[in-house]
Computed example of a mutant assay.
Amino acid sequence: MSYSHFTEKERYVISHLRLAKFSLREIARRIGRHHTSISREIKRNGPKYAPDAVYWYYGIQPVVEKRRHKARSHRRQNYQPLVEYVEDRLRMDWPPEVIA
């Protein structure tokens, strides 16, 4: 089964059904997703400091779009032994394919 991101419309439906006190399984059934996907979406993008707060789609969408386009390579760039290894090999004129 392939992975697909939640759409803005799906987040809209999730936020309104959560507000209406529907269960995660019922929300999942209505939008055609697995209930654990709904749970992860709410945990990942829902309110962080107030567990009783409401999951609002319009506040989430800009954050999600920004996160989606953020580079994930920053973790590798912060690992100093790896950075030194790559820099040393580049100074020795190794091709990037061999270093990788």
Rank of each mutant, 00 (worst) to 15 (best):
W94Q: 01
V83T: 04
A71C: 12
I38G: 00
A71S: 14
M92F: 02
G46L: 05
I31G: 06
Y58C: 13
L19C: 09
E87Q: 12
Y85C: 04
P62D: 04
D52L: 10
E97P: 04
R67D: 15
T36A: 10
N45G: 12
I60S: 14
R44S: 09
H35M: 01
Y49L: 15
N45Q: 02
A20C: 08
K21I: 06
I27H: 06
K21Q: 15
N45A: 10
G32K: 06
E84F: 01
Y85S: 00
Y49K: 14
R76T: 09
R30S: 10
L24K: 11
V83C: 03
T36N: 14
A50E: 11
S23C: 06
D93K: 14
L82E: 07
K43S: 15
S23R: 12
Y55V: 07
A20T: 05
R75I: 14
N78F: 02
E41L: 05
R25C: 07
E65N: 06
R18C: 12
K70G: 08
H69I: 10
R67A: 14
D88M: 04
H74I: 13
Y55S: 04
K66P: 06
N78C: 07
I60V: 15
V83H: 04
K48H: 11
P62L: 07
K43Y: 13
E41H: 07
L24P: 01
R89V: 03
F22R: 12
I27F: 02
P96G: 02
P95K: 15
G46P: 00
R91E: 07
G59W: 05
P62N: 08
A71L: 12
R44N: 10
L90D: 06
R75C: 11
P81L: 03
E26Y: 00
I38D: 06
Y55E: 05
R30Q: 15
F22P: 03
R33N: 05
L90N: 06
S37L: 06
I38K: 04
R89S: 02
N45D: 12
G32A: 05
S39H: 10
E26L: 09
R68W: 03
N45W: 15
Q80H: 11
Q80P: 02
P51H: 09
R44A: 08
S37W: 00
V63G: 01
P47V: 05
R75P: 03
L90F: 09
R76V: 09
V64G: 03
I38W: 02
E97Q: 11
G46Y: 01
E65A: 09
R68L: 10
K43P: 05
R76G: 12
V98N: 03
D88E: 08
H35L: 04
W94M: 08
P96F: 02
I27V: 13
Y85H: 08
E87R: 12
S37A: 08
G32F: 06
K48R: 14
R44H: 07
V64L: 14
N78T: 09
D93F: 00
V63P: 05
N78R: 13
L90W: 01
L19I: 09
V64A: 15
A53V: 04
G59N: 15
R40P: 07
K66M: 10
N45V: 00
D93I: 08
Y49H: 15
A28W: 00
W56L: 15
